[in-house]
Design a protein around this nucleic acid. Structure first.
Lengths: 206, 206
DNA sequence: GGCGACAGTGCCACTGAGTGGCATTAGCTG
DNA sequence: CAGCTAATGCCACTCAGTGGCACTGTCGCC
């Protein structure tokens, strides 16, 4: 994931730099001044880019705020697409998630925590973030269904993926509430414990 | 739920009528012309209301499109708040959902199906709709946690509710894909079958 | 090394969602 | 009928997001 490759054409390098500066500065401004209180003009001013350029890099104000989320999901999808995935699906998906988390850029963790905190406190970001989860779910179901042929019940497959994502979000929520305690390992740990709770969750009494 | 009560003060009646006209017309226009292609000015023109009045009734363009969703969730929350809920929580939540569905206004079913179809095809509505689910989840966890004291593990409780919502959405997705086949009973049926699939979903192989 | 092609950018004008303020209307009350 | 107040209409404004066009820095080619 650490693609600091200076071996790109100069144009690509510049563009990538701009992309990163936008995401980085956006996260800082949104956190410092608040999401609504920060206009895109403010952001573009700070990065010294025109608004038009912003929209060539990100589709919306929400998108740039959730860049760290997006990075994770796209890395995860890539991995699932090529991974072997043997044994119980739910377990395999979790293993792939752990592997993806370990492979993320060292700086990603900090950005991700800030993004999660922001997302918790801004409803529109929350919704948008859930939209990402949904898109990822859909893509995963397609990938997995295509791979195992028509042998697997579609509803069952979808349900598995939905439960996977629900567990991830539950773990993630707690991690964020703890201020990202334990860093990446802490998160992995919470994921493991949350998944272990699933059987209890199905049977626990009111 | 069928609150066609003509026994309200005249002012309230008018306001309610406007609210309903907005939701009804919005659903029709969004379906006929497309969500993006319909501006709020178009809608307000059709209902003969000022845009200012629209925003006194609904918080956003997405809100009015998802009014049927909102109706369901708010009715469901009301029920969960007063229901008895004995036995396994997941089962109790499902029973409460069935009961809520049965109690919905006769016309609600049609509106809901149209809303679901719209939501499937418009990303921003999809996200917003997921936001509703999330808000409902949060509210339910609070209600349930408050009721059973500190005896229940918070993470486990949340996980249960998340799995409940995930199952509902999976059932709902299929119902919508089938064009609402079987109406309300068909939906209830799908819900039952989807919930029955949960154990399989946890163990099914890749 | 100069030169054309072209991706990426800046600038400008525009649409449409959403808000605040204030005057006006219409329903309620005595 | 007169007075109160909630609801509405109207107007002006901010800001997200888009389309068009001119410009410039980078790359490839001779």
């Amino acid at each position: 994931m650490s693609d600091d490759l200076r071996e790109l054409p100069l144009r690509e390098r510049k563009k990538l730099r701009t992309r990163r500066a936008l995401a980085e500065t956006a996260l800082r401004l949104f956190t410092e001044r608040g999401y609504d209180a920060t206009t895109l003009d403010d952001l573009c001013d700070a990065v010294e880019v025109s608004k038009r350029t912003f929209f060539r890099n990100y589709r919306s104000k929400e998108d740039v705020a959730l860049a760290a989320d997006s990075d994770l999901w796209s890395a995860y999808l890539d991995r699932v697409a090529v991974a072997r995935l043997d044994g119980p699906l739910l377990e395999a998906l979790r293993a792939a998630l752990n592997a993806t988390l370990e492979d993320m850029d060292p700086d990603w963790e900090r950005r991700f925590l800030a993004t999660r905190e922001l997302s918790e406190s801004v409803p529109v970001l929350q919704s948008h973030s859930l939209g990402y989860c949904q898109d990822t779910t859909r893509a995963m179901v397609e990938t997995l269904a295509g791979r195992s042929g028509a042998g697997v019940d579609d509803t069952c497959l979808r349900l598995t993926v939905e439960i996977f994502v629900a567990s991830w979000r539950t773990a993630c929520l707690r991690w964020t509430a703890q201020g990202g305690q334990g860093g990446r390992d802490g998160l992995t740990d919470l994921i493991e414990r949350t998944f272990a709770l699933i059987p209890d969750a199905l049977t626990c009494a009111a």
